[in-house]
Each structure stands twice: as structure tokens, then as C-alpha cells.
Design a protein around this nucleic acid. Sequence first.
DNA 1: CGCCCGCTTGAATCTTATCAAAGATTGTGG
DNA 2: CCACAATCTTTGATAAGATTCAAGCGGGCG
Lengths: 252, 252
Amino acid sequence: MKAAVSNDGHGPAIRAVDPWGSPREKARQLLNEEERARLAGLATIVQFRKGEEIYREGQRADAAFNIITGVVKAYKTAADNSKHITAFLFSSDVFGLSEGGWCANSIKAITPVTAYRLPVRALRSQFLNDPGLEFHVICKLIHDLRQTQHHAFILTRRHALSKISMFLQLLEYLQAVRGEQTTIIYLPMKRSDIAEYLGMSVEAVSRAFGDLTTRGIVKSRDRQHLEIVDRSTFDKMVGDTSISPAAGSTTQ
Amino acid sequence: MKAAVSNDGHGPAIRAVDPWGSPREKARQLLNEEERARLAGLATIVQFRKGEEIYREGQRADAAFNIITGVVKAYKTAADNSKHITAFLFSSDVFGLSEGGWCANSIKAITPVTAYRLPVRALRSQFLNDPGLEFHVICKLIHDLRQTQHHAFILTRRHALSKISMFLQLLEYLQAVRGEQTTIIYLPMKRSDIAEYLGMSVEAVSRAFGDLTTRGIVKSRDRQHLEIVDRSTFDKMVGDTSISPAAGSTTQ
DNA sequence: CGCCCGCTTGAATCTTATCAAAGATTGTGG
DNA sequence: CCACAATCTTTGATAAGATTCAAGCGGGCG
């Protein structure tokens, strides 16, 4: 479903910008054919059903995964059983860089998922022989770090509308990076997932979507597909802290 | 000031946990003497005054810095001129991994700072010859990624008391990692910096500190030095979403 | 000694969380 | 193929907490 062209079966893929590259370079496939083939030799292809838990927080992780198709969520469960979603991961994303690594959280498939499975042992020895591969991992990590910083920035927004707008903008951006169409934004996750990602209640998420629709800023075919119809107002929602409570939606 | 033992003049230092190491390993110095010496060969030592801006967001960065002593803040300035602090960086931390890298934000010294300056060009060629160094950088990045995820988690807390408590806990943890004493928590940054880091107003920060003091949970010598005197109640503030508005502070 | 900047405190407004319940949707089993 | 059940989503009222605006306090630096 919604298969991206990014992972085309030629082997594991990593997408990121080269931080030492030119200023405004776009995210791109970092691994060359040879590297992908070499990694493919270590990998097996596995599948997960929708809703299936792939990792549990704190569990011993003996393999990393590289998503081919589908979407997963990475989350932490707090003491009071509330959940915080750390990230949504899509095609070409990597998770499970060891339990001590950046996926010290649980992972669950929110759509059917196909992925390469890479044993960490084999992966690590591959690193020692291949400085180029290691460098690409550094690029990917820097990319993820920036992504997480952006998540943190979204979380500082006070208004629900601002958070939801920035979230939609993010999804749109990720679709573009993956080379998909960008007119329709695809929301594979549940409202409660969005709530847990944005640090707000499900009700607030629902109301924010309602507001955006009522004001004519977005139009939704169904729960999972949404289109931005008033881009200028949408951009105001994203960029500003002070949101006009009921700005006329008349075309400027 | 408050110089840590971590950066002892033997050359650049990186502190992190090995994500492929044992489950509960503590953060430690990753570089060995030889690596530090080799990096020291590339580096020059520079100093910055308190309040001095080291990088401006989007500026061309031709060098990375490794902090020896002092504290800096990394921040982004939004369209409406409001600021969001991405991270506070201490001894052994690294910033400026290129403009495209994870420090695509401005950097400003909040205390006097001494640091190693490493030209990215030399650094990059060093990477190609030294897979071990590259691996350590990966460890550091994974460490920073988790740190940033934790920041995001703090930002999801609704109550000011919870945010401030988690922030104090973080500072305490970082002091411990650096090998400093942990009874007194040192706050080098201004209240407004804390506000910008936690996504709340300065007033809310001030009131939260006031509350913690009034309730006898913390005791402060001055604006910059604070001690946790009621640990059990403090831990409740940190761990819980539902904070008892005026829980008796009587020793259980 | 005085000014500037940072910090604290107070009162009104506003947004969201929370509780509660009804309306959709999905998936399952008869 | 339809009906039921469980889950997800929306909608409504209330209240708690935060932001905002405004003013007073304090401390450091020239």
C-alpha cells in the first residue's frame, strides 16, 4: 500500500542529505548499487501484519530493520501507561540499531510492513570493513537528529491548530522526499497516534481537523486522505504562534 | 567555571554510550589516547566570551567545535522572532558538524567557553582513514539522538512543574555523567533560556521554581544553584502526569 | 550611585484536558 | 451477505492550568 519508489528491491536503502554536501541539497539515496548489494547479502526480507509489535521497549535487539514498504511507529510507554510516539518511520527508514541505540523504544506496524532484516552482528563487522558505509550511517543519523529536533519544535507550539498544521506539513514533505505525489496527504495512523505524537488529547486532534475543514483550509476524502486547498491560510497556521481565532477565509 | 574533569587537555573528547555495548552501560569517554592525540593535531584551542555568538543559523560552517569548558546553547529563531532552544551543550559535547549537519542552528556561549576547533575539511579526511573514529562518531550521534528524543518527551508534559522537574533531573544526570558532584544542581542559563528550551513562558518557569521552593521540594542558594531536598516528592513531579495540586510534604 | 536587565508577582483571558456520550467504521462470525 | 461487536472518531460541557499584559523588585555593571 502506498508503496514508495524509494525502496525498489535492489537492496537496503538509506535516504538522507549529505551534511558535508552543498547547502540546499535534497535528501537522496545514499547507498550505491554495490553497497546495497553487499547489505542485501546479509539481509533477509520479513513481513509484519498491521498492528503487529516488532520490538518491545528494552527488549534485546539482535537485528536492525530497513523498511521497504509500510509504516511503523516508534513509541515509549510511560509509568502511568500513557504512550509517547517518538517517530513515524516510512520506506527507507531504519530502526533497531540495538537496544542501546536510538530505538530504545517499542516498534509497531501501523500498516502491513515489508522490511529487510539485518543482524547487528553481521552489520557491525561490515562497518569495520567499509568506512564509506559508516559515513552514510553518520549522514542518516544526522538527518534523523534534525528530524527529531523538528519534532521537538512542533511540540513547543501552543495551539492545536499550529501543531496539526505543522504535522501535515511534515507528512507532505516526507511524501515529497519519497518521490510520491503531494496533492493528497496520506495519514496511515490513527487519531490517537497523532495525539501521542503531538502531545495532545485525541479530542483536540479531532477538533483541530474539524476546524481546518470548517474554515475551508483542508478538504478530506476520508479519515486517511486530506488535501490542502487554501495554502496561504495553511501557511499562516504553520508559521505563526498567534492564530486569528476566526479569520475570514475569503480569498485574500 | 565548573570545569569538568572530562576534558582534561589530552585532546578532543567525546562522551557517549556504546549502543552495541552491554545493556546498562554508562556514558564514557569514547576516544583513546591515540585518537585524542591525532585529533589534537588538527585542532586549535579557541575561547569565547559569555554571550558571544559562535554560529548564526544558516551560516557557512567550516569548523566543528568540541567544548573543553563552559556551556553553550543551540537555538533556532522562528519567523516571529521567537527563539527555540534545541539543546544546551556542555564539556565534551560537539557542535558545528557542518551547516547541513545537526547544528543548523545558532550557537551562543552562555558562560565563558574554551573549545577545540576542528576544520571540517581535515576532519572529514581523517574519517576516511579511521573507521574506529567514525564508529565513535556514530555512537555520539546515537547518544545525541536519544537526548533529543528525551527533550521531545519533556516537551509533551502539560504541567509546568513536570517540565521543570524533568529539566532539573536532566541537568543532574548530565552533571553525574560528567563526573561532577550532584547534590547541588548548577543552572548556568537564564530563566528565559529555560523557558525557550521547555516551550513555556518565563513567568511559568519562575512560578514553577517558586512552587518547588514553597513546597519544600527544592532549596536554592541563588538563581544558579539549587538542591533537591525532598527526593520522593520530586520524583513524583517527574514521573507523573497528574500532579496533586497541594500534596502535603510531610515525610511519608 | 544610578541605570539596565533579569526575575518575580498579580489579575484577566483563553485553550486545552477531562469527563461523558453519541456517531462511524472496521472486522468477524453466523 | 448481513448483523453484531469492538474500536475509533466526533461532539458537548466544565474546569484547570497556562499565556498574556502589567507592574514592582533586585542585582550587576558601568
